[in-house]
């Protein structure tokens, strides 16, 4: 489902680890190595972090003393570069002598246009995930909105799935609250990268589908596998979640 709407998806892969002794020196060496490998795409640095970016490719990478993360504007940049990202993460973790990750998570946030009004999406959320509003009449006379979060395991991975119907105004607030958006601009005065993405989701009610696939205490040798698998798990999960909301048949459950 996410792959069918790649231009309405924002992704974030985050891996946290215990800082190792001498990390400050090692991190700068690692950053130099990554910069050479990533074709001099260093963007900015702080005392304990190095950020690289390819704004044309809607791709951002930050390595810090205790975690690293990749962020993309759109799903395709992440799918196209996931192997490259795996290599970059490997360089950082090897350089910092990290063997074990405290946690790793892949988050995909999609603004799914269901071609429904906000009130209709809310109605479907009650009808499919909650309860008929009539059955809840002893609680309130009217229910104008809803949001749900589900936690579980799919294909062996822990997940958090949240579904939130949004008005066009809420879509706007939600999108512009995404962190690091400004770093996707080639030129902050004239860049169109964010506007192009925004134009694809603006002015319409949407179902905000946020999926986070996560693992704790993962050996670094498993990170690349997680990066690959988490895309398909998130994609499947989003697909069955939206199909359930639309009362469309779901082929199988895992």
């Amino acid at each position: 489902m996410l792959t069918e709407r790649p231009n309405s998806v924002i992704t974030l892969l985050n891996a946290t680890y215990e800082p190792q002794i001498g990390y400050a020196r090692k991190l700068s060496e690692v950053a130099e190595s990554v910069n050479r490998w990533f074709k001099n795409r260093h963007w900015f640095s702080t005392e304990n972090s190095y950020t690289f970016r390819d704004p044309d490719g809607h791709f951002l990478f930050t390595a810090r003393w205790n975690h690293l993360f990749f962020q993309t504007l759109g799903l395709k940049p992440w799918i196209d570069r996931v192997e490259e990202a795996g290599e970059m993460a490997d360089k950082v973790l090897t350089g910092l002598n990290v063997k074990q990750l405290k946690s790793v998570s892949f988050r995909a946030q999609a603004f799914v246009d269901l071609e429904m009004a906000h009130s209709e999406i809310v109605d479907r959320l009650y009808a499919t995930y909650l309860a008929d509003r009539g059955e809840l009449s002893h609680i309130a006379s009217d229910f104008t909105d809803a949001a749900i979060a589900l936690y579980g395991v799919r294909s062996g991975h822990k997940f958090r799935l949240s579904l939130t119907p949004q008005t066009p105004e809420q879509v706007k607030t939600s999108f512009f609250a995404v962190q690091n958006l400004e770093h996707f601009l080639v030129d902050k005065f004239v860049g169109n990268e964010i506007r192009d993405f925004w134009n694809g989701i603006a002015g319409k009610a949407a179902l905000n589908v946020e999926i986070e696939i996560s693992e704790d205490d993962l050996g670094t040798e498993w990170l690349k596998k997680f990066m690959q698998e988490s895309i398909s798990v998130a994609n499947e999960l989003a697909g069955v979640a939206v199909k359930h909301l639309l009362a469309l048949p779901v082929s199988s459950s895992k």
Partner: peptide, 13 residues
């Protein structure tokens, strides 16, 4: 007026 997607979803349910 109800959207087509909504009416279809209610029909299936």
């Amino acid at each position: 007026l109800r959207s087509a997607a909504y009416v279809g979803a209610v029909r299936r349910t």
